[in-house]
Computed example of a mutant assay.
Amino acid sequence: MELLLLIEMAAPFVADLQLRWPLARLTPQHADAVRIVITNGSTGLSAQQMDALPALQLVCCYGAGYENIDLQAAQQRGITVTHAPGVNNATVADHAMALMLSSARALPLLDRAVKAGQWLGHRTARPAVHGKRLGIVGMGNIGALIARRAAGFDMEVAYHARHPRPDIAYRYVGDVLELARDSDYLMLACPGGPATRHLVNKEVLDALGPQGFLVNIARGSVVDTTALIEALQQKRIAGAALDVIENEPAIPPEAAQLDTLILTPHISGRSPEAQQAQHDALLYNIRACLEGQPLRHVLTLS
């Protein structure tokens, strides 16, 4: 049996896989023997790749996302696809709030300035977060956790999703453009994929306006990066904080020149607790597959 790892994974977790399954190989030296693939939503797995692995039985998403896995092709080939929903929701929500606060209060810029001896020159007023309007695009489990945290800052929360949620007390807005227009902070917590590609474009950014901030902990593809950089350069929005960006890890050269843009390296879901839970979910499904037992969190075509 060969286990094919397509993504970066912390060394202790790789070592744990090798310890549990000594015969597992983490390189596709013998494609005909690969039974299990470990990937994630960003890396995905295409129909062509599946065809190159004739013995493939299971595709494990290391995390909740699965937008770039061809579920239809997997189903047609009798390949099971699993993921790990919910294991890092709270950590992502924490990071989203940290990005919003850091952008509003310009913390990275002020840190650099003070360390460079520019204390007095940067004691200007910065926007508050408490009492402001937060628009959340995507009201799944992560969006709901962000909203709960925002309530602690006395923020006025509204949201946009494919459908309103009757179990959610926050105001539903049926159009992203309208939500941006009514928000001081626009938070992206929606799925990636073709349906949300460049959902945030020039028009949405203009609706957010020169006092507005954008935060993205969803997928880089949700934001038109060229339009965002132009909006920041022209001060048509006040700032942006992104944990994800199109074509990551590469970033546009202009991004490095913008003090109003904060970037983190797609780590919103990474905490020791979240990573261990994610790894435990992976181990469970690998073991269940090899032992012919029921799998958890199996993905099917909706």
Score class of each variant (00 low, 15 high):
295 L>I: 14
159 Y>T: 10
132 K>M: 07
260 T>I: 00
1 M>D: 02
264 T>G: 12
51 D>R: 08
186 L>E: 09
72 Q>R: 05
47 A>L: 12
255 A>I: 09
147 A>W: 05
118 Q>V: 01
113 A>F: 03
68 N>T: 01
147 A>T: 08
121 G>C: 01
244 V>K: 11
199 L>N: 02
203 E>K: 12
218 A>Q: 07
147 A>Y: 03
200 V>N: 06
184 D>M: 05
197 R>E: 11
112 R>V: 03
278 Q>N: 13
90 A>G: 03
106 A>K: 15
261 L>N: 13
84 A>M: 12
190 C>Q: 07
187 M>S: 04
109 L>M: 10
176 V>Q: 07
173 V>Y: 00
280 D>M: 06
294 P>A: 09
134 L>M: 13
169 A>R: 06
220 G>V: 12
95 H>F: 15
158 A>Y: 03
257 Q>L: 15
63 G>N: 02
214 L>R: 10
181 R>T: 10
147 A>F: 02
288 A>N: 09
261 L>Q: 13
62 Y>S: 00
114 V>H: 03
101 L>T: 03
162 R>E: 09
135 G>E: 03
128 A>V: 11
213 F>T: 14
195 A>F: 04
211 Q>E: 15
201 N>D: 14
216 N>Q: 08
119 W>C: 06
125 A>H: 08
293 Q>W: 08
183 S>F: 07
114 V>L: 14
1 M>L: 02
137 V>T: 10
47 A>K: 07
284 Y>I: 13
297 H>N: 15
238 A>D: 03
229 I>Q: 00
85 P>A: 02
102 S>F: 12
203 E>N: 13
259 D>M: 01
43 T>S: 08
224 D>R: 02
113 A>V: 02
107 L>I: 15
53 L>N: 02
10 A>T: 01
55 A>I: 04
16 D>A: 14
283 L>T: 02
267 I>R: 11
87 V>Q: 10
88 N>R: 00
302 S>P: 15
298 V>M: 10
90 A>C: 01
279 H>C: 08
252 P>Q: 01
139 M>E: 05
166 P>A: 13
162 R>P: 10
7 I>R: 08
114 V>E: 05
271 S>R: 11
47 A>S: 14
207 A>T: 11
201 N>L: 03
5 L>N: 05
199 L>D: 05
119 W>L: 13
170 Y>A: 15
174 G>P: 03
276 Q>A: 01
229 I>T: 01
169 A>H: 07
262 I>H: 14
164 P>F: 02
23 L>F: 08
93 A>C: 04
114 V>C: 13
69 I>W: 07
124 T>N: 14
40 N>K: 06
224 D>Y: 05
172 Y>R: 10
93 A>D: 05
85 P>E: 02
207 A>K: 08
233 Q>A: 04
113 A>L: 09
290 L>I: 07
244 V>E: 09
290 L>D: 00
218 A>G: 15
281 A>V: 03
